[in-house]
Design a protein around this nucleic acid. Structure first.
Length: 283
DNA sequence: GATTGGGAGCGTCATTTGCG
DNA sequence: CGCAAATGACGCTCCCAATC
């Protein structure tokens, strides 16, 4: 899967869709998400009517996005940045849009829940600790991320690229644990004993075994088959999960690079605007 | 060549998540 | 709600580079 994710955040044809790509694609001609990000810039209050010639040419792709179907909302305080959530690396427990409110006070916490929360203004229910915990809720699974972005079918195609892998299931290898004894073992109503055993690679497992006429211990056939099948499936699942995790990390790394570039461009743009503004002011 | 430390990958178990 | 899949955590092995 080398080169699956291209620099501009779009995914390669045969690869899995970059779960994070849409948020970073500034052109976005083919993306279903019209709005990738909305940034409201507030001009200095001293010069509300300043005429500023944009350094952004009409046909030039700007890193600052606008969207015709989005209405700007006047907010009483501070600047508001709306971030489309689905592709954001920031995950919250609610809503499609996140509102990040930026306040100048140094001790203010930035909340992703739609409101800021300074240390002293929070009630017990809304304590910073609680909010922090909420922010740390488990990240959605890779499967969910793909589903949200409509990439499920791609994932399925990938699965399809290994046709018949289930048929390769082999139940031939025997279990390796020894039927060591009943000290502390429990006997069930079905006559099976339940015993905790240690696996070869740490951890443990609960197995059931029975005794034959000679009092020897054995594990019922279908019990071992079930266990083997479960282990085999889980082995495959773990492998797949690791692959997806690596892919996900690649995507994140790619996104970092894209955002760093965007940040650079924004800084440059801001610099140019500032220069223009100062020029016109002195004239 | 022997030793050592770190990284990558694997198998398994326990737990969480998602779906019917 | 139950079940299967997905994922985190843990321990193990293998490989490779650095050091002695």
């Amino acid at each position: 899967m080398d080169g699956m994710v291209e620099e501009n955040g779009t995914s390669g044809g045969a690869g899995v869709a970059d779960p994070l790509a849409n948020a970073s694609s500034s052109a976005g001609a083919s993306t279903p998400h019209v709005v990738t990000s909305i940034v409201q810039l507030t001009l200095p209050a001293q010069a509300p009517s300043a005429q500023v010639q944009s350094v952004i040419q009409p046909n030039q792709q700007s890193v600052i996005q606008t969207a015709s179907n989005i209405q700007s909302v006047q907010l009483p305080k501070g600047n508001v940045i709306l971030v489309s959530k689905p592709s954001s690396v920031i995950h919250t427990t609610q809503g499609t849009l996140q509102t990040l409110q930026i306040k100048p006070e140094p001790n203010t916490l930035v909340s992703t829940q739609g409101q800021s929360c300074s240390d002293e203004s929070c009630s017990d229910d809304e304590s910073p600790k609680r909010k922090y915990r909420e922010m740390l809720t488990r990240r959605p699974s890779y499967r969910k991320i793909l589903n949200d972005l409509g990439g499920a079918e791609i994932a399925e195609n990938r699965m399809g690229s290994k046709p018949g892998c289930e048929n390769e299931v082999s139940l031939s290898s025997p279990l390796s644990f020894a039927p060591v004894i009943p000290a502390g073992a429990l006997q069930t109503e079905s006559g099976l004993h339940t015993l905790a055993v240690s696996g070869a690679a740490g951890g443990g497992a609960i197995v059931q075994y029975a005794t034959n006429q000679d009092g020897q211990f054995y594990v019922p056939e279908d019990q071992t088959r079930k266990r083997e099948l479960r282990l085999l499936k889980n082995r495959e699942a773990a492998r797949e999960c690791r692959r997806k995790k690596k892919e996900y990390i690649k995507c994140l790394e790619n996104r970092v690079a894209v955002l760093e570039n965007q940040n650079k461009a924004l800084i440059e743009e801001l610099k140019s605007l500032k220069e223009l503004y100062c020029q016109q002011k002195t004239e």
